[in-house]
Design a protein around this nucleic acid. Structure first.
Lengths: 196, 196
DNA sequence: CCTCGCGATGTCAGTCCCTGACATCACTAT
DNA sequence: ATAGTGATGTCAGGGACTGACATCGCGAGG
């Protein structure tokens, strides 16, 4: 996604530009072939034609190189919140519908590759949980700002993220063919049926 | 909790015995007074009359010293699962009732101290999320072994953990007086009301 | 009573993650 | 042309964690 264009190059200082993207690609490649633990930050940086120190200027820590996308995803996710309304169920329904559009078929292979790396390493799963928790928190705030009471907002947000995460796991599973929207809808329905 | 008795001493090798407990207490104390990042493993070990190397023989990493209790908690939590039945709702209801008994009033001050340390450090929150995720996974397995289908089991388990976590956060909040069971019941009710 | 074995601890060296401080380079605006 | 700005390089160092090996305390068997 987002290859650096000429405009970016100009503001990126020394050499080729797009340092962050190069580092991300190098990291995913090395993690895939030799594992996360079997890869040092120095190696990633060298593969991107940079220095270890520069790596840490772009990413807070070694794990973060796989999760910067997630930050932009969080914005997109929250962007799917309906403009108005104060019914928690309607709001998270809307958010989930919006989220589904963020995972078109073309993205599935890449998501699978990334998920394979994450599943293979517990430290990476830990970071993923933190990101999802941050997502739930942001959604909670968005809901309360819509007038939902704090307790309901927190539970609705957590439930929405649970549905999303569960659906995502199914979507990237081996051999799965259904669309993200279809899977997510069925997960959501099942959750609602369960808690009654 | 669980101060080492004479029987333990015998099997604990060199010197006083109860190394693990000493390390845990030293760690919580130092984290409280000078913060998690401001405390080195060497300091903790020295405070317990041990070596850094020995610390890492008892705990997989620095964070884990605050979470070993959680492992025994996971066993107790799962132990609250009703003996029989295959209705997911009834099963997680039972588990949550059992979990509430694990947090009597006497434990609240200690839980507050511990939670204060965790809330102050994002790396610790990350670990806590991992533990809760592991708990949800274990509960999922327990439910499927009771005959619940995989998808429902996963959603029920995640929901149960969400309720527990939310209730816990309220229970340790400043000035909160209600019992864990009361809080958890109201959280659970609200979640069920929400998703209908 | 001795010694042998075993488990817990100590010691040491080394790798890797991550950071602060300072120098250097490319590019831009004036 | 020159100074300024932002990205990168270089260097030194702390702290987390690990493998290899030595040592100590204790309990079991002779």
């Amino acid at each position: 996604m987002s290859v650096p264009d000429i405009t970016m190059m100009r503001i990126m200082g020394r050499w080729q530009g797009g340092a962050s993207e190069r580092l991300r690609e190098a990291a995913l490649g090395l993690f895939t072939t030799q594992g996360y633990d079997g890869t040092t930050v120095a190696e990633i940086a060298a593969a991107a034609g940079l220095t270890e120190r520069t790596f840490f200027r772009h990413f807070a820590d070694k794990r973060e190189v796989l999760f910067v996308d997630q930050d932009e995803f969080e914005r997109a996710f929250l962007g799917g919140l309906p403009e108005s309304g104060d019914d928690p169920m309607a709001l998270i329904s809307g958010v989930l519908d919006g989220a589904a559009t963020l995972f078109p078929e073309e993205r599935r292979p890449w998501s699978r590759a990334r998920q394979a790396v994450i599943i293979a390493n517990i430290a990476l799963q830990e970071r993923e949980l933190l990101k999802l928790s941050s997502l739930a928190f942001a959604l909670t705030r968005a809901l309360t700002s819509r007038g939902v009471d704090a307790a309901s907002a927190a539970l609705a947000a957590e439930s929405a993220v649970t549905v999303f995460r569960t659906a995502f796991a199914v979507w990237v599973a081996d051999g799965e063919k259904r669309t993200f929207a279809d899977i997510q809808y069925s997960v959501f329905s099942r959750l609602r049926a369960l808690l009654r």
